[in-house]
Design a protein around this nucleic acid. Structure first.
Lengths: 340, 340
DNA sequence: CTGTTAGCGCGTTCAG
DNA sequence: CTGAACGCGCTAACAG
């Protein structure tokens, strides 16, 4: 037991383990990491000592030496949105299985915060990054520094990254076509005021469905507003009151929630007075009465695939670029019916 | 412009900045970090060069040198549970304001995963950790190594950590008393099968309320089950069918959701056939018809306070221990009414 | 199979 | 106010 268990203020280091095991630091390193040759008994002894001393490798030192860490940066738009939470969960599980850590950041859809996150990942020498991009800046910075980026949910980078997205246009078209088939013609669209491919795709799908049915798109029926904007409720209310749409297509789960609340507050009944369809199916949509018809996305799976794409690229940086487009699925519930 | 902008495979380093700025690495370090004396013009020049070269400090090197990073470890039980998501959001925002990063991990209420998370934090030299503890092991390991831990939502560590919790007993008592006042006597309790202080407190509160009202607690009315357990639905259904409680108190939001679904599936009507109260108020509870009476917790605030407690301790490691107990608030909605 | 040597990039002495 | 020297803990070369 020697004097090794003193109240050292220092954490136990590889050198401590080596000394205690009667070997050199490099041999101890090989024994613990499993790289290179080590005599079986030496390895065993070293492992035992490490265990006994409670040795925990210093990742900073390792990262400094190897010039890359095993921490994958992940940034999503909004941690408290169930969609992004599920996405992150899918990513984390997959990364964990491959022995990588996830460093999760939320950027509140803010370019500056996203950029600051990217800088953090760079300074931590993350070998790769997965993001729901808010702007081109962050991904471009990363890619420019040689860090592979996988975009999820939407694509924005000017450089060509791997990506996992949903077929937004088809999802929106399915949703709106469903309404058209029920006999609706005045269909309101609620969407975020972004330039993201996700929103653009949903808008295209909405328009395409109308045109295909011979209905002329009306700009006044389209409201672009952010969930957190102060005037969001007022603008949605204005749509309801002034335009009297017989149905509303909300392009994300948060706008759907807002719309749902406002429709009730206005004393309107779903679907009698107005039908409602959402893009992105979340639990409450099945629980309310009537249930909300929604375009379901395989969220967890999207996270998983994004992680797999990144892992593949880490394994082979030169492999061809992949963009996976997953299929949405329209889940019909009680919130959609024929117009009055 | 010299030859400094070559296609170097290496990231730009402090030495590069120093060379370009015509100074030494140590001066450059002082200039950029702001510690120590540097001539104003030298500082300015160095900053400019750093900016121009796109210098991003290597955190590993800095951490290795300073023996501590600015990454705070955070581990919660379930990333996809809105309660924990909100908690994490509160923590993150506060840490960010203090210029710390959050490393968020989910442990799925699993001791092994929690322990592995703690080891990760240790190996990354995190200066502190915030956790919703699943067992004593992780916190004890951390504290034993001199890393301050703040427990949130529940307390478990044998060592005395700072903590932020809700007054579980009072919350439960308020909820059950509300039911008793409505005339209920057969009140079922759904709770997780843990030894956590949160669940214990809620159980105590439930019992205390009954006893205070002269109602004899009946063990058969208490079902301890995990949300993800395969037999959870069956056991809850059995409670409903065999014991015929006139009201149910679900001790967390997920059990409340399960109960709500099963009550409907059994063709029972809320609150006519059975009343329902939940501990932890989440958005859907306000949206369903009737709304669910629930004990609301200031979740975001709990996260924020936990972060503040940790920051204070980082600032002054010897300061007295603090345990903050926040007040819950009973929100009465339509899911509770008199028994038949 | 093993130990010695030599940094990874940074911050912190301590003389100038 | 500045720079030279050193070392944080680890691993990749290399020689033995």
């Amino acid at each position: 037991m020697e004097g090794a268990r003193r109240m050292t203020p220092h954490a136990v280091t590889l050198a401590d383990v080596a000394r205690e095991a009667g070997t050199s630091p490099s041999t101890a390193s090989r024994a613990l990491s499993g790289h290179g040759y080590v005599a079986p008994d030496v390895r065993k002894r070293t492992l035992a000592v490490a265990e006994r001393l409670g040795y925990i490798p210093n990742l900073s030192a390792r990262t400094l030496k190897q010039r890359r860490s095993r921490v994958i940066g992940v940034v999503v738009s909004d941690l408290s949105n169930q969609f992004y939470a599920a996405l992150a969960a899918g990513v984390e599980q997959t990364l964990r299985e491959a022995n990588y850590q996830m460093l999760l950041l939320g950027d509140n859809s803010d370019t500056a915060q996203e950029l600051s996150g990217a800088r953090t990942f760079l300074s931590m020498r993350a070998p790769g990054v997965i993001m729901t991009p808010a702007s081109q800046a962050a991904a471009d910075l990363l890619v420019g520094r040689g860090i592979p980026v996988v975009e999820v949910d939407r694509r924005l980078a000017t450089s060509s990254c791997d990506a996992v997205v949903i077929d937004n246009e088809r999802g929106a078209r399915d949703a709106v076509t469903h309404l058209l088939e029920l006999g609706h013609a005045r269909i309101g669209l609620l969407m975020a005021p972004t330039t993201w491919t996700s929103d653009a795709g949903r808008l295209h799908g909405y328009r395409a469905a109308l045109v295909a049915a011979g209905v002329r798109p009306d700009r006044k029926l389209v409201v672009k507003t952010d969930m957190h904007a102060a005037d969001a409720p007022a603008r949605i209310a204005a749509l309801l009151e002034n335009e009297r749409p017989t149905a509303i297509f909300a392009a994300n789960n948060q706008l759907a929630e807002q719309a749902w609340r406002l429709i009730r507050r206005h004393g309107l009944e779903i679907p009698r007075d107005v039908s409602l369809v959402a893009f992105d199916d979340v639990p409450w949509m099945e629980m309310v009465q009537p249930g909300i018809t929604a375009v379901a996305q395989p969220v967890f799976e999207m996270g998983r695939r994004a992680a797999l794409l990144l892992l593949r690229r880490l394994d082979d940086p030169t492999c061809g670029r992949t963009v996976e487009v997953l299929d949405p699925r329209l889940v019909i519930r009680g919130s959609t019916g024929g117009p009055q």
